[in-house]
Design a protein around this nucleic acid. Structure first.
Lengths: 271, 271
DNA sequence: CTAATAGTGTCTATTAGACAGTATGTT
DNA sequence: AACATACTGTCTAATAGACACTATTAG
Protein backbone atom coordinates (compact mmCIF):
# COMPACT_ATOMS: atom_id res chain seq x y z
CA UNK A 1 0.00 0.00 0.00
CA UNK A 2 0.96 3.60 -0.47
CA UNK A 3 1.94 5.92 2.33
CA UNK A 4 0.44 9.06 0.87
CA UNK A 5 -1.26 10.54 -2.15
CA UNK A 6 2.14 11.73 -3.44
CA UNK A 7 3.54 8.25 -3.05
CA UNK A 8 0.55 6.79 -4.87
CA UNK A 9 0.81 9.24 -7.75
CA UNK A 10 4.50 8.54 -8.22
CA UNK A 11 3.73 4.88 -8.68
CA UNK A 12 0.49 5.15 -10.62
CA UNK A 13 0.40 3.14 -13.82
CA UNK A 14 -1.12 5.49 -16.35
CA UNK A 15 -1.60 2.74 -18.89
CA UNK A 16 -3.70 0.37 -16.83
CA UNK A 17 -6.69 1.24 -18.99
CA UNK A 18 -6.34 1.65 -22.72
CA UNK A 19 -6.60 5.27 -23.72
CA UNK A 20 -8.60 6.72 -26.55
CA UNK A 21 -8.80 9.80 -28.69
CA UNK A 22 -11.11 12.70 -28.03
CA UNK A 23 -12.23 15.17 -30.64
CA UNK A 24 -14.64 18.05 -30.69
CA UNK A 25 -17.14 18.94 -33.41
CA UNK A 26 -18.66 22.37 -33.69
CA UNK A 27 -22.07 23.10 -35.05
CA UNK A 28 -21.95 26.72 -36.17
CA UNK A 29 -25.37 28.21 -36.82
CA UNK A 30 -26.21 31.54 -38.37
CA UNK A 31 -28.91 33.36 -40.30
CA UNK A 32 -28.73 34.13 -44.03
CA UNK A 33 -30.74 36.40 -46.26
CA UNK A 34 -32.40 35.19 -49.42
CA UNK A 35 -32.88 38.18 -51.70
CA UNK A 36 -36.34 38.35 -53.21
CA UNK A 37 -37.32 39.67 -56.62
CA UNK A 38 -40.54 41.32 -55.43
CA UNK A 39 -39.48 44.81 -54.35
CA UNK A 40 -42.23 44.91 -51.73
CA UNK A 41 -41.44 41.70 -49.94
CA UNK A 42 -38.93 41.24 -47.13
CA UNK A 43 -35.87 39.15 -47.79
CA UNK A 44 -36.55 35.62 -46.68
CA UNK A 45 -34.49 34.59 -43.66
CA UNK A 46 -32.72 31.27 -43.81
CA UNK A 47 -31.21 29.20 -41.06
CA UNK A 48 -27.69 28.07 -41.90
CA UNK A 49 -24.97 25.76 -40.73
CA UNK A 50 -21.28 25.81 -41.61
CA UNK A 51 -19.91 22.61 -43.12
CA UNK A 52 -16.45 21.69 -44.32
CA UNK A 53 -15.63 19.55 -47.30
CA UNK A 54 -13.24 16.79 -46.34
CA UNK A 55 -10.24 16.52 -48.63
CA UNK A 56 -8.65 13.57 -46.86
CA UNK A 57 -9.72 10.12 -45.83
CA UNK A 58 -11.78 8.93 -44.12
CA UNK A 59 -15.01 10.18 -45.69
CA UNK A 60 -13.06 12.00 -48.40
CA UNK A 61 -15.27 14.43 -50.37
CA UNK A 62 -18.09 14.28 -47.83
CA UNK A 63 -19.21 17.21 -45.72
CA UNK A 64 -18.54 17.40 -42.01
CA UNK A 65 -18.60 19.78 -39.10
CA UNK A 66 -15.49 21.79 -38.30
CA UNK A 67 -13.62 20.14 -35.49
CA UNK A 68 -10.45 18.47 -34.42
CA UNK A 69 -8.56 16.62 -31.75
CA UNK A 70 -8.61 17.83 -28.18
CA UNK A 71 -5.02 18.38 -27.14
CA UNK A 72 -3.68 16.62 -24.13
CA UNK A 73 -2.73 19.92 -22.53
CA UNK A 74 -5.87 21.95 -23.24
CA UNK A 75 -9.13 22.12 -21.35
CA UNK A 76 -11.99 20.43 -23.16
CA UNK A 77 -13.90 23.66 -23.70
CA UNK A 78 -10.82 25.43 -25.04
CA UNK A 79 -10.65 23.07 -28.00
CA UNK A 80 -13.79 24.37 -29.74
CA UNK A 81 -12.74 27.93 -28.94
CA UNK A 82 -9.39 27.36 -30.62
CA UNK A 83 -10.98 25.74 -33.65
CA UNK A 84 -13.59 28.48 -33.99
CA UNK A 85 -10.85 31.07 -33.89
CA UNK A 86 -8.97 29.24 -36.64
CA UNK A 87 -12.07 28.68 -38.70
CA UNK A 88 -13.84 32.04 -38.49
CA UNK A 89 -11.18 34.27 -37.01
CA UNK A 90 -13.55 35.75 -34.45
CA UNK A 91 -13.71 35.11 -30.77
CA UNK A 92 -16.25 35.74 -28.01
CA UNK A 93 -18.79 33.63 -29.77
CA UNK A 94 -21.72 31.95 -28.09
CA UNK A 95 -20.65 28.40 -27.43
CA UNK A 96 -22.45 25.65 -25.58
CA UNK A 97 -21.65 22.00 -25.04
CA UNK A 98 -24.20 19.80 -26.77
CA UNK A 99 -23.56 16.14 -26.30
CA UNK A 100 -20.78 13.57 -26.25
CA UNK A 101 -21.01 10.88 -28.88
CA UNK A 102 -19.08 7.74 -28.16
CA UNK A 103 -20.20 4.73 -30.15
CA UNK A 104 -17.40 2.31 -30.84
CA UNK A 105 -17.49 2.49 -34.60
CA UNK A 106 -18.32 6.11 -35.17
CA UNK A 107 -14.91 6.65 -36.72
CA UNK A 108 -13.34 4.02 -39.00
CA UNK A 109 -9.81 4.99 -38.04
CA UNK A 110 -9.97 3.98 -34.39
CA UNK A 111 -11.90 4.58 -31.19
CA UNK A 112 -12.68 8.28 -31.13
CA UNK A 113 -15.12 9.89 -28.75
CA UNK A 114 -16.35 13.33 -29.67
CA UNK A 115 -17.82 16.12 -27.61
CA UNK A 116 -19.95 18.39 -29.75
CA UNK A 117 -20.51 22.08 -29.22
CA UNK A 118 -23.04 24.47 -30.68
CA UNK A 119 -21.96 27.98 -31.69
CA UNK A 120 -24.22 30.84 -32.72
CA UNK A 121 -22.90 33.74 -34.75
CA UNK A 122 -24.05 36.62 -36.85
CA UNK A 123 -22.35 35.74 -40.10
CA UNK A 124 -22.43 39.32 -41.35
CA UNK A 125 -19.82 40.16 -38.76
CA UNK A 126 -17.39 37.74 -40.38
CA UNK A 127 -14.80 39.05 -42.75
CA UNK A 128 -14.23 36.79 -45.70
CA UNK A 129 -11.58 34.98 -43.77
CA UNK A 130 -13.40 31.70 -43.63
CA UNK A 131 -11.47 28.61 -44.51
CA UNK A 132 -11.68 27.81 -48.22
CA UNK A 133 -13.20 24.39 -47.78
CA UNK A 134 -15.97 25.69 -45.55
CA UNK A 135 -19.34 26.86 -46.75
CA UNK A 136 -22.74 27.77 -45.39
CA UNK A 137 -25.69 25.51 -46.04
CA UNK A 138 -29.29 26.53 -45.64
CA UNK A 139 -31.29 24.16 -43.50
CA UNK A 140 -34.77 22.93 -44.26
CA UNK A 141 -36.38 20.51 -41.88
CA UNK A 142 -39.57 18.54 -42.05
CA UNK A 143 -40.95 15.87 -39.82
CA UNK A 144 -43.42 13.14 -40.55
CA UNK A 145 -44.27 10.31 -38.21
CA UNK A 146 -41.07 10.66 -36.18
CA UNK A 147 -38.93 10.64 -39.29
CA UNK A 148 -37.05 13.88 -39.73
CA UNK A 149 -35.80 14.94 -43.12
CA UNK A 150 -33.16 17.62 -43.18
CA UNK A 151 -32.18 19.21 -46.44
CA UNK A 152 -28.99 21.20 -46.77
CA UNK A 153 -28.58 23.47 -49.73
CA UNK A 154 -26.36 26.14 -51.21
CA UNK A 155 -24.77 27.14 -54.54
CA UNK A 156 -22.33 24.25 -54.46
CA UNK A 157 -24.35 21.29 -53.33
CA UNK A 158 -27.77 20.10 -52.21
CA UNK A 159 -28.65 16.92 -50.35
CA UNK A 160 -30.76 15.51 -47.54
CA UNK A 161 -30.59 12.97 -44.80
CA UNK A 162 -33.26 11.22 -42.79
CA UNK A 163 -33.25 10.34 -39.11
CA UNK A 164 -35.75 8.31 -37.17
CA UNK A 165 -36.55 9.54 -33.67
CA UNK A 166 -37.30 6.80 -31.17
CA UNK A 167 -38.50 7.79 -27.72
CA UNK A 168 -36.07 6.43 -25.13
CA UNK A 169 -38.41 6.21 -22.18
CA UNK A 170 -42.07 7.03 -21.92
CA UNK A 171 -41.31 9.36 -19.03
CA UNK A 172 -39.21 11.79 -20.97
CA UNK A 173 -38.72 13.86 -24.08
CA UNK A 174 -35.44 12.24 -25.01
CA UNK A 175 -35.04 10.44 -28.31
CA UNK A 176 -32.58 7.99 -29.71
CA UNK A 177 -31.63 9.10 -33.20
CA UNK A 178 -31.13 6.52 -35.89
CA UNK A 179 -29.76 7.52 -39.29
CA UNK A 180 -31.90 5.89 -41.97
CA UNK A 181 -30.62 7.75 -45.00
CA UNK A 182 -27.43 9.73 -45.54
CA UNK A 183 -24.77 9.74 -48.16
CA UNK A 184 -23.16 13.15 -47.99
CA UNK A 185 -22.38 13.77 -44.34
CA UNK A 186 -19.30 12.26 -42.72
CA UNK A 187 -19.15 10.37 -39.42
CA UNK A 188 -22.25 10.65 -37.23
CA UNK A 189 -22.47 14.38 -37.82
CA UNK A 190 -26.09 14.10 -38.95
CA UNK A 191 -26.91 13.31 -35.33
CA UNK A 192 -25.02 16.33 -34.10
CA UNK A 193 -26.85 18.59 -36.55
CA UNK A 194 -30.26 17.34 -35.50
CA UNK A 195 -29.41 17.51 -31.78
CA UNK A 196 -28.33 21.09 -32.22
CA UNK A 197 -31.42 22.12 -34.15
CA UNK A 198 -33.65 20.69 -31.46
CA UNK A 199 -31.64 22.24 -28.65
CA UNK A 200 -31.78 25.65 -30.29
CA UNK A 201 -35.50 25.34 -30.90
CA UNK A 202 -36.13 24.55 -27.25
CA UNK A 203 -33.89 27.28 -25.93
CA UNK A 204 -35.48 29.88 -28.17
CA UNK A 205 -38.49 29.88 -25.88
CA UNK A 206 -36.84 30.40 -22.55
CA UNK A 207 -33.53 32.15 -23.24
CA UNK A 208 -32.29 35.06 -25.33
CA UNK A 209 -29.83 33.10 -27.46
CA UNK A 210 -31.34 34.24 -30.77
CA UNK A 211 -29.67 37.58 -30.30
CA UNK A 212 -26.31 35.92 -30.81
CA UNK A 213 -27.34 35.43 -34.42
CA UNK A 214 -28.81 38.90 -34.93
CA UNK A 215 -27.04 42.04 -36.07
CA UNK A 216 -26.92 44.89 -33.59
CA UNK A 217 -29.92 46.65 -35.14
CA UNK A 218 -32.90 44.80 -36.53
CA UNK A 219 -36.61 45.28 -37.10
CA UNK A 220 -39.16 43.27 -35.16
CA UNK A 221 -40.33 41.81 -38.45
CA UNK A 222 -36.87 40.42 -39.10
CA UNK A 223 -36.61 39.04 -35.59
CA UNK A 224 -39.98 37.39 -36.02
CA UNK A 225 -38.83 35.82 -39.28
CA UNK A 226 -35.86 34.29 -37.47
CA UNK A 227 -38.11 32.85 -34.77
CA UNK A 228 -40.42 31.46 -37.42
CA UNK A 229 -37.72 29.78 -39.46
CA UNK A 230 -36.22 28.10 -36.38
CA UNK A 231 -39.52 27.10 -34.82
CA UNK A 232 -40.86 26.03 -38.20
CA UNK A 233 -44.19 27.77 -37.79
CA UNK A 234 -45.86 31.13 -38.30
CA UNK A 235 -46.39 33.36 -35.28
CA UNK A 236 -49.08 35.97 -34.75
CA UNK A 237 -47.76 39.53 -34.67
CA UNK A 238 -49.32 40.78 -31.43
CA UNK A 239 -48.39 37.65 -29.51
CA UNK A 240 -44.82 37.78 -30.77
CA UNK A 241 -44.44 41.43 -29.85
CA UNK A 242 -45.74 40.76 -26.38
CA UNK A 243 -43.21 37.99 -25.83
CA UNK A 244 -40.12 39.88 -26.94
CA UNK A 245 -41.24 43.33 -25.72
CA UNK A 246 -39.03 43.36 -22.65
CA UNK A 247 -36.03 41.82 -24.37
CA UNK A 248 -35.50 44.58 -26.92
CA UNK A 249 -35.31 48.34 -26.92
CA UNK A 250 -36.50 50.68 -29.62
CA UNK A 251 -33.96 52.97 -31.26
CA UNK A 252 -34.43 56.14 -33.31
CA UNK A 253 -33.18 54.41 -36.45
CA UNK A 254 -35.82 53.83 -39.10
CA UNK A 255 -35.49 51.35 -41.89
CA UNK A 256 -37.04 52.53 -45.15
CA UNK A 257 -36.78 51.36 -48.72
CA UNK A 258 -39.19 48.42 -48.79
CA UNK A 259 -42.38 49.05 -50.70
CA UNK A 260 -44.30 49.38 -47.46
CA UNK A 261 -44.48 51.23 -44.17
CA UNK A 262 -41.00 51.75 -42.71
CA UNK A 263 -40.03 50.13 -39.47
CA UNK A 264 -38.21 51.21 -36.36
CA UNK A 265 -35.08 49.29 -35.62
CA UNK A 266 -34.56 47.67 -32.25
CA UNK A 267 -31.63 46.20 -30.41
CA UNK A 268 -31.15 43.64 -27.69
CA UNK A 269 -31.81 45.27 -24.34
CA UNK A 270 -28.69 45.37 -22.26
CA UNK A 271 -30.10 44.38 -18.89
CA UNK B 1 -1.49 10.08 -51.41
CA UNK B 2 -3.77 7.17 -50.76
CA UNK B 3 -5.68 5.35 -53.42
CA UNK B 4 -8.75 4.56 -51.36
CA UNK B 5 -10.23 4.75 -47.92
CA UNK B 6 -9.04 1.20 -47.20
CA UNK B 7 -5.54 2.13 -48.24
CA UNK B 8 -5.67 5.19 -46.02
CA UNK B 9 -6.89 3.25 -43.02
CA UNK B 10 -4.16 0.63 -43.39
CA UNK B 11 -1.55 3.35 -43.16
CA UNK B 12 -3.18 5.59 -40.58
CA UNK B 13 -0.98 6.54 -37.67
CA UNK B 14 -3.21 6.10 -34.65
CA UNK B 15 -0.77 7.84 -32.37
CA UNK B 16 -0.44 11.12 -34.18
CA UNK B 17 -2.37 12.80 -31.38
CA UNK B 18 -1.74 11.90 -27.78
CA UNK B 19 -4.60 9.87 -26.36
CA UNK B 20 -6.29 10.35 -23.06
CA UNK B 21 -8.43 8.46 -20.58
CA UNK B 22 -12.19 8.70 -20.45
CA UNK B 23 -14.25 7.85 -17.41
CA UNK B 24 -17.90 8.09 -16.58
CA UNK B 25 -19.46 9.29 -13.34
CA UNK B 26 -23.00 8.47 -12.38
CA UNK B 27 -25.23 10.62 -10.30
CA UNK B 28 -27.84 8.27 -8.84
CA UNK B 29 -30.83 10.07 -7.36
CA UNK B 30 -33.64 8.60 -5.33
CA UNK B 31 -36.22 9.51 -2.71
CA UNK B 32 -35.97 8.51 0.95
CA UNK B 33 -38.47 8.55 3.79
CA UNK B 34 -37.78 10.24 7.06
CA UNK B 35 -39.98 8.63 9.69
CA UNK B 36 -41.77 11.13 11.88
CA UNK B 37 -42.68 10.76 15.53
CA UNK B 38 -46.06 12.48 15.21
CA UNK B 39 -48.48 9.69 14.25
CA UNK B 40 -50.65 12.13 12.33
CA UNK B 41 -47.97 13.59 10.08
CA UNK B 42 -46.78 12.16 6.80
CA UNK B 43 -43.25 10.87 6.62
CA UNK B 44 -41.03 13.61 5.31
CA UNK B 45 -39.65 12.88 1.83
CA UNK B 46 -35.96 13.40 1.27
CA UNK B 47 -34.03 13.72 -1.93
CA UNK B 48 -30.97 11.47 -1.95
CA UNK B 49 -27.82 10.78 -3.89
CA UNK B 50 -25.63 7.70 -3.79
CA UNK B 51 -21.97 8.32 -2.93
CA UNK B 52 -19.06 5.96 -2.58
CA UNK B 53 -16.27 6.24 -0.06
CA UNK B 54 -12.92 6.06 -1.79
CA UNK B 55 -10.55 3.60 -0.20
CA UNK B 56 -7.67 4.23 -2.56
CA UNK B 57 -5.72 7.22 -3.71
CA UNK B 58 -6.26 9.76 -5.08
CA UNK B 59 -8.75 11.47 -2.73
CA UNK B 60 -8.54 8.55 -0.32
CA UNK B 61 -11.34 8.66 2.31
CA UNK B 62 -13.32 11.27 0.40
CA UNK B 63 -16.73 10.67 -1.11
CA UNK B 64 -17.26 10.41 -4.84
CA UNK B 65 -19.80 9.35 -7.42
CA UNK B 66 -19.82 5.77 -8.61
CA UNK B 67 -18.01 5.54 -11.90
CA UNK B 68 -15.12 4.08 -13.77
CA UNK B 69 -13.12 3.94 -16.94
CA UNK B 70 -14.86 3.64 -20.28
CA UNK B 71 -13.50 0.56 -21.96
CA UNK B 72 -11.96 0.83 -25.38
CA UNK B 73 -14.41 -1.72 -26.76
CA UNK B 74 -17.63 -0.47 -25.21
CA UNK B 75 -19.99 2.26 -26.36
CA UNK B 76 -19.87 5.35 -24.18
CA UNK B 77 -23.43 4.93 -22.95
CA UNK B 78 -22.84 1.28 -22.08
CA UNK B 79 -20.25 2.21 -19.47
CA UNK B 80 -22.69 3.80 -17.00
CA UNK B 81 -25.10 0.93 -17.63
CA UNK B 82 -22.44 -1.60 -16.74
CA UNK B 83 -21.41 0.31 -13.64
CA UNK B 84 -25.00 0.75 -12.49
CA UNK B 85 -25.57 -2.95 -12.90
CA UNK B 86 -22.47 -3.68 -10.79
CA UNK B 87 -23.35 -1.08 -8.20
CA UNK B 88 -27.07 -1.63 -7.71
CA UNK B 89 -27.66 -4.92 -9.45
CA UNK B 90 -30.70 -3.64 -11.32
CA UNK B 91 -31.04 -2.74 -14.95
CA UNK B 92 -33.53 -0.77 -17.01
CA UNK B 93 -32.89 2.32 -15.00
CA UNK B 94 -33.56 5.84 -16.22
CA UNK B 95 -30.23 7.15 -17.45
CA UNK B 96 -29.42 10.41 -19.15
CA UNK B 97 -26.16 11.99 -20.23
CA UNK B 98 -25.48 15.14 -18.25
CA UNK B 99 -22.27 16.83 -19.23
CA UNK B 100 -18.67 16.12 -20.11
CA UNK B 101 -16.11 17.60 -17.78
CA UNK B 102 -12.64 17.97 -19.20
CA UNK B 103 -10.46 20.43 -17.37
CA UNK B 104 -6.79 19.53 -17.52
CA UNK B 105 -6.24 19.11 -13.82
CA UNK B 106 -9.51 17.60 -12.73
CA UNK B 107 -7.69 14.37 -11.86
CA UNK B 108 -4.25 14.43 -10.23
CA UNK B 109 -3.24 11.11 -11.80
CA UNK B 110 -3.26 12.22 -15.42
CA UNK B 111 -5.47 13.77 -18.06
CA UNK B 112 -8.88 12.22 -17.58
CA UNK B 113 -12.03 13.50 -19.22
CA UNK B 114 -15.29 12.35 -17.71
CA UNK B 115 -18.78 12.11 -19.12
CA UNK B 116 -21.35 12.26 -16.37
CA UNK B 117 -24.73 10.59 -16.39
CA UNK B 118 -27.77 11.04 -14.20
CA UNK B 119 -29.77 8.00 -13.08
CA UNK B 120 -33.12 8.03 -11.31
CA UNK B 121 -34.29 5.05 -9.31
CA UNK B 122 -36.81 4.05 -6.72
CA UNK B 123 -34.48 2.85 -4.03
CA UNK B 124 -37.14 0.68 -2.41
CA UNK B 125 -36.87 -1.64 -5.38
CA UNK B 126 -33.24 -2.32 -4.55
CA UNK B 127 -32.35 -5.40 -2.64
CA UNK B 128 -29.60 -4.85 -0.12
CA UNK B 129 -27.06 -5.67 -2.75
CA UNK B 130 -25.50 -2.26 -2.82
CA UNK B 131 -21.76 -2.09 -2.66
CA UNK B 132 -20.48 -1.86 0.89
CA UNK B 133 -18.68 1.42 0.41
CA UNK B 134 -21.74 3.12 -1.05
CA UNK B 135 -24.31 5.00 0.93
CA UNK B 136 -27.23 7.31 0.40
CA UNK B 137 -26.94 10.96 1.39
CA UNK B 138 -29.86 13.28 1.85
CA UNK B 139 -29.53 16.50 -0.07
CA UNK B 140 -30.33 19.94 1.23
CA UNK B 141 -29.79 22.89 -1.02
CA UNK B 142 -29.97 26.59 -0.40
CA UNK B 143 -29.07 29.50 -2.58
CA UNK B 144 -28.13 33.02 -1.65
CA UNK B 145 -26.82 35.61 -4.06
CA UNK B 146 -25.71 33.04 -6.64
CA UNK B 147 -23.86 31.02 -4.04
CA UNK B 148 -25.31 27.57 -3.67
CA UNK B 149 -24.75 25.58 -0.51
CA UNK B 150 -25.40 21.89 -0.69
CA UNK B 151 -25.46 19.82 2.46
CA UNK B 152 -25.21 16.05 2.32
CA UNK B 153 -26.18 14.08 5.37
CA UNK B 154 -26.75 10.57 6.63
CA UNK B 155 -25.99 8.37 9.66
CA UNK B 156 -22.32 8.12 8.77
CA UNK B 157 -21.30 11.59 7.77
CA UNK B 158 -22.52 15.14 7.25
CA UNK B 159 -20.84 17.91 5.30
CA UNK B 160 -21.48 20.72 2.83
CA UNK B 161 -19.90 22.37 -0.13
CA UNK B 162 -20.42 25.76 -1.74
CA UNK B 163 -20.47 26.66 -5.40
CA UNK B 164 -20.63 30.06 -7.01
CA UNK B 165 -22.79 30.34 -10.11
CA UNK B 166 -21.53 32.81 -12.68
CA UNK B 167 -23.71 33.55 -15.69
CA UNK B 168 -21.76 32.68 -18.84
CA UNK B 169 -23.51 35.00 -21.26
CA UNK B 170 -26.29 37.47 -20.67
CA UNK B 171 -28.32 35.78 -23.39
CA UNK B 172 -28.68 32.46 -21.69
CA UNK B 173 -29.43 30.51 -18.55
CA UNK B 174 -26.09 28.75 -18.48
CA UNK B 175 -23.75 29.12 -15.54
CA UNK B 176 -20.12 28.48 -14.94
CA UNK B 177 -19.77 26.70 -11.61
CA UNK B 178 -16.87 27.54 -9.37
CA UNK B 179 -16.21 25.51 -6.24
CA UNK B 180 -15.56 27.90 -3.37
CA UNK B 181 -15.71 25.46 -0.49
CA UNK B 182 -15.38 21.69 -0.40
CA UNK B 183 -13.37 19.27 1.62
CA UNK B 184 -15.21 15.99 1.48
CA UNK B 185 -16.04 15.39 -2.18
CA UNK B 186 -13.43 13.97 -4.53
CA UNK B 187 -12.51 15.31 -7.97
CA UNK B 188 -14.92 17.86 -9.45
CA UNK B 189 -17.92 15.78 -8.44
CA UNK B 190 -19.49 18.73 -6.62
CA UNK B 191 -20.05 20.23 -10.04
CA UNK B 192 -21.67 17.07 -11.33
CA UNK B 193 -24.00 16.95 -8.34
CA UNK B 194 -25.13 20.53 -8.79
CA UNK B 195 -25.55 20.13 -12.56
CA UNK B 196 -27.72 17.11 -11.97
CA UNK B 197 -29.89 18.78 -9.35
CA UNK B 198 -30.55 21.70 -11.67
CA UNK B 199 -31.24 19.46 -14.67
CA UNK B 200 -33.71 17.39 -12.68
CA UNK B 201 -35.43 20.48 -11.34
CA UNK B 202 -35.91 21.84 -14.86
CA UNK B 203 -37.10 18.57 -16.32
CA UNK B 204 -39.61 18.08 -13.54
CA UNK B 205 -41.78 20.74 -15.14
CA UNK B 206 -41.95 19.45 -18.67
CA UNK B 207 -41.36 15.71 -18.50
CA UNK B 208 -42.56 12.78 -16.41
CA UNK B 209 -39.18 11.74 -15.06
CA UNK B 210 -40.26 11.92 -11.41
CA UNK B 211 -42.09 8.68 -11.85
CA UNK B 212 -38.77 6.89 -12.21
CA UNK B 213 -38.21 7.64 -8.55
CA UNK B 214 -41.71 6.73 -7.39
CA UNK B 215 -42.99 3.32 -6.32
CA UNK B 216 -45.72 1.80 -8.46
CA UNK B 217 -48.49 3.02 -6.15
CA UNK B 218 -48.40 6.35 -4.36
CA UNK B 219 -50.76 8.98 -3.01
CA UNK B 220 -50.97 12.40 -4.56
CA UNK B 221 -49.78 13.86 -1.28
CA UNK B 222 -46.59 11.83 -1.51
CA UNK B 223 -46.08 12.82 -5.13
CA UNK B 224 -46.55 16.44 -4.19
CA UNK B 225 -43.97 16.10 -1.41
CA UNK B 226 -41.47 14.81 -3.95
CA UNK B 227 -42.12 17.76 -6.26
CA UNK B 228 -41.76 20.14 -3.36
CA UNK B 229 -38.48 18.73 -2.12
CA UNK B 230 -36.92 18.87 -5.58
CA UNK B 231 -38.29 22.26 -6.53
CA UNK B 232 -37.50 23.60 -3.09
CA UNK B 233 -40.85 25.28 -2.59
CA UNK B 234 -44.38 24.59 -1.40
CA UNK B 235 -47.08 24.03 -3.99
CA UNK B 236 -50.79 24.71 -3.69
CA UNK B 237 -52.90 21.57 -3.67
CA UNK B 238 -55.46 22.43 -6.35
CA UNK B 239 -52.82 23.73 -8.75
CA UNK B 240 -50.65 20.66 -8.24
CA UNK B 241 -53.55 18.29 -8.83
CA UNK B 242 -54.49 20.09 -12.01
CA UNK B 243 -50.95 19.77 -13.36
CA UNK B 244 -50.52 16.05 -12.72
CA UNK B 245 -54.16 15.05 -13.32
CA UNK B 246 -53.56 13.60 -16.77
CA UNK B 247 -50.28 11.93 -15.87
CA UNK B 248 -51.68 9.60 -13.22
CA UNK B 249 -54.60 7.24 -12.86
CA UNK B 250 -56.55 6.53 -9.72
CA UNK B 251 -56.63 2.94 -8.43
CA UNK B 252 -59.02 1.25 -6.00
CA UNK B 253 -56.28 0.93 -3.39
CA UNK B 254 -56.76 3.11 -0.35
CA UNK B 255 -54.01 4.03 2.05
CA UNK B 256 -55.17 4.25 5.64
CA UNK B 257 -53.31 4.34 8.93
CA UNK B 258 -52.32 7.98 9.19
CA UNK B 259 -54.22 9.96 11.79
CA UNK B 260 -56.28 11.61 9.09
CA UNK B 261 -58.50 11.03 6.11
CA UNK B 262 -57.27 8.09 4.01
CA UNK B 263 -56.08 8.62 0.48
CA UNK B 264 -56.56 6.85 -2.79
CA UNK B 265 -53.39 5.55 -4.35
CA UNK B 266 -52.50 6.45 -7.88
CA UNK B 267 -50.07 5.17 -10.43
CA UNK B 268 -48.31 6.57 -13.47
CA UNK B 269 -50.69 6.50 -16.39
CA UNK B 270 -49.43 4.17 -19.05
CA UNK B 271 -50.09 6.23 -22.16
C1' DC C 1 -54.24 53.16 -56.17
C1' DT C 2 -52.05 48.72 -54.67
C1' DA C 3 -49.43 45.35 -52.40
C1' DA C 4 -46.89 44.55 -48.64
C1' DT C 5 -45.32 45.19 -44.04
C1' DA C 6 -45.72 47.92 -39.37
C1' DG C 7 -48.03 48.39 -35.48
C1' DT C 8 -52.12 48.45 -32.06
C1' DG C 9 -56.67 47.47 -29.75
C1' DT C 10 -59.56 44.25 -27.98
C1' DC C 11 -62.19 40.21 -27.29
C1' DT C 12 -61.94 35.40 -25.84
C1' DA C 13 -60.03 31.16 -24.17
C1' DT C 14 -56.95 28.97 -21.40
C1' DT C 15 -54.04 28.53 -17.52
C1' DA C 16 -52.09 29.75 -12.99
C1' DG C 17 -52.64 31.49 -8.22
C1' DA C 18 -55.20 31.91 -4.10
C1' DC C 19 -58.27 30.81 -0.61
C1' DA C 20 -62.03 28.76 1.58
C1' DG C 21 -64.58 24.99 2.59
C1' DT C 22 -65.93 20.01 3.24
C1' DA C 23 -64.53 15.07 4.28
C1' DT C 24 -62.61 11.50 7.13
C1' DG C 25 -59.59 8.24 9.95
C1' DT C 26 -56.64 7.88 14.35
C1' DT C 27 -55.76 8.85 18.95
C1' DA D 1 -63.17 16.29 19.93
C1' DA D 2 -58.82 17.52 17.76
C1' DC D 3 -55.50 17.18 14.36
C1' DA D 4 -53.64 16.37 10.10
C1' DT D 5 -54.25 15.32 5.60
C1' DA D 6 -57.56 14.50 1.36
C1' DC D 7 -60.04 16.62 -1.93
C1' DT D 8 -63.08 20.08 -4.39
C1' DG D 9 -65.27 24.57 -5.76
C1' DT D 10 -64.73 28.94 -7.20
C1' DC D 11 -63.06 33.50 -7.74
C1' DT D 12 -59.37 36.26 -9.72
C1' DA D 13 -55.15 37.30 -12.20
C1' DA D 14 -52.25 36.57 -15.81
C1' DT D 15 -51.17 34.83 -20.20
C1' DA D 16 -51.94 33.10 -24.94
C1' DG D 17 -54.62 32.99 -29.28
C1' DA D 18 -57.29 35.21 -32.69
C1' DC D 19 -58.91 38.72 -35.50
C1' DA D 20 -59.74 43.23 -37.08
C1' DC D 21 -58.26 47.56 -37.81
C1' DT D 22 -55.20 51.63 -38.94
C1' DA D 23 -50.66 53.47 -40.77
C1' DT D 24 -47.27 54.08 -44.21
C1' DT D 25 -44.29 53.52 -48.02
C1' DA D 26 -42.35 52.47 -53.27
C1' DG D 27 -43.79 51.88 -57.52
Amino acid sequence: MYKSEEDFLRNYNKDEYEKLSLTTDILIFSISDNKTTNYRKLNEKLFSVLLVKRNTYPFKDKWCLPGGFVRIDENLEDAPKRILKDETNIKDIYLEQLYTFGDINRDPRMRIVSTSYMALIDKNRLNDTINNDASWFNIKKSEDNNIVTITLENDIDCFSFKIKKILKEKTTDRYKFEIIENNKIAFDHCLVILSGIERLKNKLEYTDIVFNMMPEYFTLGELQQVYEIILGKKLLDPAFRRIIANKVEKTEIIKTGGGHRPSYMYRYKNI
